[in-house]
Nucleic acid binder design. Structure first.
Lengths: 125, 125
DNA sequence: CCGTATCCATAGAGATACTG
DNA sequence: CAGTATCTCTATGGATACGG
């Protein structure tokens, strides 16, 4: 009855999809990747992540915290200071994040540039 | 000026996000994962992927084809026969897919079960 | 067998303004 | 500094039903 070396997972409980869900939502990949560096304050993260609105950054961070991947440390100071860091579970994603980065640099980015070249007619501003 | 061993990527051109975009859309992870097995016909894929409607499966496959990750081979027969397989680029995602699967089995699935236990009050049907 | 076409509901995300 | 609060728009995906 051997028909596959890979286990067949249906939707409920597919480990691939379950893991991908952690990254679903704009910017989660980037956030996690930048936190590999170490602890970052909200605005440091915001600067690194670039094109994410404050609202979105907050939202994604809360979700990541909910997953137990990110730790949020609030300091009772004025002005306010909040630091974000990876939990152990979050850090265990490092191999995945680095693999995503490597693949992207090798395959995805070159294509993006092609596409940008195609549609370079617009938005030269 | 060393401040990070990791390069700082803004949104445009972040390789992590660029790679993640390939997986965005319901079922893409699962589809790619199952195609690691080898060539599959539409309905074989449908069975493995389980809770994906025909419409969605078609849509995701078209997008993956568009990314150049999946090859679609149509046979001019009656009844129709269409086979899907990974391109070389698609196959190069294998390390990522396996890493996602391994992480999921170790971390994500145990949590899912917790959550399901919590909300087990509803939908026992 | 392998899809399209259509309609509809919801979740995701942008812009912007305000606050402890 | 580090967030909420709205309000709006679009993209995503489910449920059919039909077609080559």
């Amino acid at each position: 009855m051997k028909q596959s070396r890979y286990k067949t997972y249906a939707r409920e409980g597919c480990p691939v999809e379950a893991t991908l869900e952690l990254f679903s939502g704009k910017g989660k990949g980037m956030i996690l990747y930048h936190l590999l560096e170490g602890t970052l304050r909200f605005n440091e993260l915001k600067r690194r992540v670039g094109a994410l609105t404050q609202r979105m950054l907050t939202k994604q961070l809360r979700e990541l915290e909910g997953y137990g991947l990110v730790h949020r440390e609030v300091y009772a100071e004025v002005p306010p200071k909040v630091e974000y860091s990876l939990t152990d579970t979050g850090r265990s994603l490092e191999p995945i994040l680095l693999a995503l980065k490597d693949w992207g640099e090798e395959h995805a980015l070159p294509r993006l540039r092609e596409k940008q070249a195609e549609s370079a007619i617009c938005e030269t501003e």
